[in-house]
Each structure stands twice: as structure tokens, then as C-alpha cells.
């Protein structure tokens, strides 16, 4: 193992998959000559040239559609959205075309494409640039939705996403790009399967399910709770569609209580889906109602103090764990 930043892990995944398969190409705004708005694609143009690293005009619906069309006839595009906020102008392409054509064509046409880019709040970029996009895309049959929290998962899951025969919505985190984590050594190939949860921290007292940016908030909160005698078990679903609840149910059998922590708004979405499934799949094991700690139900404000209030905080996580644990 060695340490890599989340950004570098993603970059390595793209280098390796482009090296392996000429059908893979990267297309998006500023991915080439600018070296990526967030430097994820740095160096790819130098190595693979303008044929396979393609700068586009600001036209998300256009280049998302070009990617889908190219995938329909055998290429394996990686479409970068500078941020997922801008994917909404390409929503129809993803929903009506990428997610539908396999079934509309009775299985004759596959769309092996990855849509990727940073998702969720960054820092003080306000309401139009802070969307947590998972709820929009997890609703749609025909899509996979992946949201890795660590560098290792980012690399292993992106490689699997590129090799998938289906459209994958790949949600990265702008605030995670600089976070370093352990990744297998060079030359050791790791493909992390889409649709498998991961145990991030073991503990017997309370299960916490979380992903994305709040993953780190939860791990910090778990340490504080441990100091107070409450050991949390943290599970990262990694993939939000399809959702793997097996590990969560197994954990609940031990802890009998659960808090789900996510950045997206509380109305619906994968957070609500997890709660719905767990209350059915683990009903007999529950000693307390399932709780959620979510982004507050407001458009993201600009002021830093308000933004900090909107995003899930350690205090809110600790309070929720104590509530379901009937602890003070």
C-alpha cells in the first residue's frame, strides 16, 4: 500500500483504463489543455493526445449526448462534468437517453459510459453550485450511481465503472480531492465491484451508514463517541444504486440501532431509501427508531457560518447516536 490523494487515485484509474482499452476516451470542459478544472485529468492530454482527451465547448447536453451516441456504437466514453451542478442541463440526455435505450431497444443497444465530476458542497460556492446530486440519479432505473469516499474506493470503483456495460453516474467530492488515503501499490490492479458496501470502522454499539464528505465527519464523531464509551460501526455503501444493505443488516443485528448520515437534502433520496429498507429488513432487531442526519432542507447559503450549519456536523451526529442509544 501507498498513500495517494483522491484526485490522483482517480487520475491513475483513467490512465490505466485508457492504456488498457483504446475505446476509452475522456471528454469535457477543460479536461485537456487546461489539465482539468480540478486537475483530475492532469497529464492525460500529453499522453493520449487530442483524439482521446477532448476539450469541449460549454455544452453539457451536447457532449453528454455525443458520449451516449458514441457508447451506443461501441466506444466507452468518460464524460466529465466540471461539477454535477452543470449536469442538470444535460439531465434529459442522462435520464431519457442513457438510462432508457437499453430497454427501449429490447436489450439490443448498450451504453457503456461514465459520467463523472465533483458533487456536493465545496466551500462557500452558494446555492447553485452546491447540489448533492445523488437523489436525482438514484431514482432512475437503468443507471448505476457510485459515490466513493476514499482514494482507494475512488480508484477501484472508477476502473469498474469504466469497464461496466451500463451508464454509471460517478459522484466525486470536491472537498475530497486533496484527501490522501491508502491505495494498492503500482502494478497491483484492484477492481472494486459496483454494488458492494464496505465496513469502515468496527463497533458494537451503534451502526452509522454514511458516504461522501460526511464520511469523515462521522469517523471523527465516532472517535469522540468512543471516548465516551459508545463504539460505532461505520458502513460506507460506496454504491447508491444498486444498494447493498446486507452488511448494514448484519451490523444492525449486533448494534440494534442505526443512524444514516448524508449530505443531500432530507426529502427522499438514498438516505430515505436506506432507512426504508433497513426498517423492513431488520425490524426485529431494532431497539430504537432509525435516525437520519442530513443536509438541512434549504438552498445552500453563501456565508461560511451558515454553510457549516447546513452540512451535517459532528455535534449533530453525536446527538443522533446518543438519542438512538438512549444515552446522555
Amino acid at each position: 500500500m501507498r498513500k495517494l490523494r483522491y484526485r490522483e487515485a482517480l487520475r491513475e484509474a483513467m490512465f490505466e483504463e485508457m492504456e488498457r482499452d483504446d475505446r476509452v476516451f475522456l471528454m469535457g470542459e477543460e479536461v485537456g489543455h487546461y489539465q482539468g478544472a480540478y486537475k483530475v485529468s492532469e497529464g492525460l492530454l500529453d499522453k493520449y493526445g487530442e483524439r482521446r482527451v477532448i476539450d469541449t465547448p460549454i455544452a453539457e447536453a451536447g457532449f453528454a449526448g455525443v458520449g451516449i451516441g458514441a457508447a451506443m456504437v461501441g466506444l466507452r466514453p468518460i464524460i466529465e462534468f466540471m461539477t454535477w451542478n452543470f449536469s442538470f442541463v444535460a439531465f434529459d440526455q442522462i435520464i431519457s437517453n442513457a438510462a432508457k435505450v437499453h430497454q427501449m431497444s429490447a436489450g439490443e443497444i448498450q451504453v457503456p459510459i461514465v459520467f463523472r465530476g465533483p458533487n456536493g458542497a465545496a466551500k462557500q460556492v452558494s446555492s447553485q453550485h452546491s447540489h448533492s446530486a445523488a437523489p436525482f440519479y438514484t431514482h432512475i432505473p437503468g443507471l448505476y450511481v457510485v459515490q466513493p469516499s476514499t482514494a482507494r474506493d475512488a480508484k477501484g470503483l472508477l476502473k469498474s465503472a469504466i469497464r461496466s456495460n451500463n451508464p454509471v453516474v460517478f459522484l466525486e467530492g470536491e472537498t475530497l480531492y486533496g484527501v490522501a488515503g491508502e491505495v494498492p501499490d503500482e502494478g497491483v490492479e484492484e477492481l472494486i465491484p459496483i454494488g458492494e458496501s464496505r465496513l469502515a470502522r468496527a463497533g458494537a454499539d451503534c451502526t452509522i451508514v454514511t458516504w461522501g464528505r460526511p464520511y469523515y465527519t462521522v469517523l471523527a464523531a465516532a472517535e469522540k463517541l468512543a471516548a465516551q464509551g459508545i463504539e460505532c460501526e461505520v458502513i460506507d455503501p460506496r454504491t447508491l444504486r444498486p444498494l447493498d444493505t446486507a452488511l448494514m443488516v448484519q451490523s444492525l443485528k449486533k448494534t440494534n440501532r442505526c443512524v444514516v448520515v448524508h449530505e443531500h437534502w432530507p426529502y427522499g433520496g438514498p438516505g430515505a431509501e436506506i432507512v426504508d429498507r433497513l426498517q423492513r429488513e431488520a425490524f426485529d432487531y431494532l431497539d430504537a427508531p432509525l435516525e437520519r442526519v442530513t443536509g438541512l432542507d434549504v438552498p445552500m447559503p453563501y456565508a461560511l457560518n451558515l454553510e457549516d450549519t447546513v452540512l451535517p456536523t459532528e455535534e449533530r451526529v453525536i446527538d443522533a447516536v446518543k438519542r438512538v442509544s438512549y444515552a446522555k
Binding site: A64, G65, G74, Q93, N97, I109
Partner: peptide, 25 residues
């Protein structure tokens, strides 16, 4: 014949995409 498409204007970029593939390959 790669489809009849139901959303007005939605399939034009797909056609540019299959043409992109012709050029790419």
C-alpha cells in the same frame, strides 16, 4: 436504424455521437 426517439431535439446529439465514433475509429 438506431431508434425512434420521443423527446424533441434529444436525439440530435446522439447522432453526432455515432458520427464521432466513425471519426474516432
Amino acid at each position: 436504424f438506431l431508434g425512434g426517439w420521443g423527446i424533441v431535439g434529444g436525439h440530435l446529439a446522439l447522432a453526432a455521437g455515432t458520427a464521432f465514433k466513425s471519426k474516432y475509429a
